[in-house]
Simulated assay, not measured.
Amino acid sequence: MDSAYQIVTRNLAEHFEVDPARLTPETTLEQLELDSLSILEFGLLLQEETGVRRLDEGVVTFRTTLGAIAATLDNQRTGGSAGTEVRMVTGAVLAGDR
């Protein structure tokens, strides 16, 4: 099984054509120049691949680092609330958290 960080970076490279050399745990989604629709799609891809159905609001935003996203996924996959309602990106993006 891939680590959460590998899942995060692979999805960015494959689905958004981000150069893997730009991806570090400290990189934010804003630095990768993803727009709000791309961030929403990215969050949904992560949910689909990991089975985590809920990422707390504020986890996948423009300012979130890749390391923080991976840590949250790890937490959710190892005993967090997988299987609960999807509630993630939309509130943070629509609120203009940029």
Rank of each mutant, 00 (worst) to 15 (best):
A4F: 05
L12G: 03
M1Y: 07
L73K: 02
E41C: 04
A13W: 00
D56E: 09
D74G: 00
S36R: 09
L23A: 01
L32F: 06
T27V: 14
T90A: 10
S36H: 06
E48Y: 12
T78W: 04
L66F: 01
D74M: 02
V93Q: 08
L32S: 08
Q76H: 02
L66T: 03
S81T: 09
L32M: 10
L12Y: 03
Q47C: 11
L46E: 06
L66N: 03
V8P: 07
T72V: 00
V86G: 03
E33D: 14
R63I: 04
P20F: 00
N75K: 11
G67D: 00
G51Y: 10
V93E: 10
G58V: 14
R22H: 09
F16V: 11
T84S: 13
L66W: 05
R87F: 06
A70G: 00
Y5C: 08
E26F: 07
D56N: 05
I39E: 01
A68T: 07
E57G: 09
G96V: 05
L66K: 01
V8R: 04
A92D: 15
Y5N: 03
E33C: 07
G80E: 03
I69K: 00
F42V: 02
L44D: 11
E57M: 12
E85P: 08
D56L: 14
E57P: 12
S36V: 06
Q31T: 05
Q31S: 09
S3R: 10
E85L: 06
T9H: 10
E26R: 11
T61Y: 10
N75C: 05
E33L: 07
Q47N: 11
T84I: 14
D56I: 07
L46G: 02
L45Q: 11
A68E: 15
M88G: 12
V93M: 15
